[in-house]
């Protein structure tokens, strides 16, 4: 089967520094895949290449088998490649209702529509409420995003991405900074993501990686170091040496 997302020999150089070193990576359809690696391994650069914020120096990116290497970031989103951010990137002055709504109407192709009022069509409202329910946001729909509790903001961060109807979802440390009390709510929504969405989880937290992922790729110094099932990676002594050893101390 065509992989959901694939990179072929992806390279990114910043001057003399090679941040992404010849990465060939496959994300299968419906995968629950984690990308791990020590700090400075180039995970962020890799995500920015995938989403189109950065242009690669060399190599190809295929989304559902189609070459998207040269595609603008917003057009990749329209094709189903969506990401969340490690540090919340939300719209401070808007409510969750509007935030989800804008993502939904953008996806439906209404984004450039300047004559009809936003939320005028029932299917948009239905979908907003659907998503809000799924991400436990119905009780805060009308509050300003900047005044939401951090845990709720974190949920909204994923809900917005989900509203874009991703076929490939890149989750960048979804639980980062979430207090213990709210953690369960967040992780259960992540676990309940529909199976037709292929998920790439970029994560530091090994508990989360082991509970969520089926396959794990390890990135070291910009290059793919190894890849395997959870069992293989967790027992691989080399991975322990380069990565897990450090992370246990945290």
């Amino acid at each position: 089967m065509t992989p959901a997302l694939e990179t072929i020999g992806l390279v990114k150089r910043f001057g003399g520094l090679v941040a992404t070193d010849n990465v060939s990576f496959r994300l299968e359809q419906g995968a629950r895949h984690a990308l791990i690696g020590p700090n400075g391994a180039g995970k962020t650069t890799f995500v920015n290449l995938l989403t189109g914020v950065l242009a690669p120096s060399d190599g190809q990116i295929l989304l559902q088998g189609e070459d998207v290497t040269q595609l603008r970031p917003d057009l990749r989103v329209k094709r189903g490649l969506v990401r969340t951010f490690q540090i919340n990137q939300l719209f401070a002055g808007m409510t969750p209702l509007e935030t989800i709504g804008v993502a939904v109407s953008e996806r439906m192709g209404h984004g450039g529509d300047w004559w009809r009022p936003a939320g005028g069509s029932p299917e948009v409202i239905d979908e907003i409420v659907d998503i809000a329910t799924r991400f436990h946001l119905t009780d805060v729909l009308e509050e300003r995003t900047s005044s939401l509790a951090y845990g709720k903001q974190r949920l909204l961060e994923i809900a917005v991405a989900f509203a874009c109807k991703p076929r490939v979802l890149l989750l960048d440390e979804p639980a980062a900074g979430v207090p213990e009390a709210d953690r369960h709510e967040l992780l259960s929504t992540v676990a309940a993501l529909p199976r037709d969405v292929s998920v790439l989880l970029i994560e530091h937290d090994m508990d989360l990686v082991f509970s969520f992922a089926e396959r794990i790729s390890v990135l070291v110094n910009g290059a793919l170091f190894t890849e395997g099932t959870v069992a293989e990676i967790s027992t691989d002594p080399r991975v322990r040496a380069v990565y897990l050893g450090e992370s246990v101390d945290e």
Binding site: V77, V82, Q89, V102
Partner: peptide, 16 residues
Amino acid sequence: RTIRDNPLRASAIGTP
């Protein structure tokens, strides 16, 4: 308004 508040995210939800 999403662009005003956060152009990075606006682009990440598919807004040109």
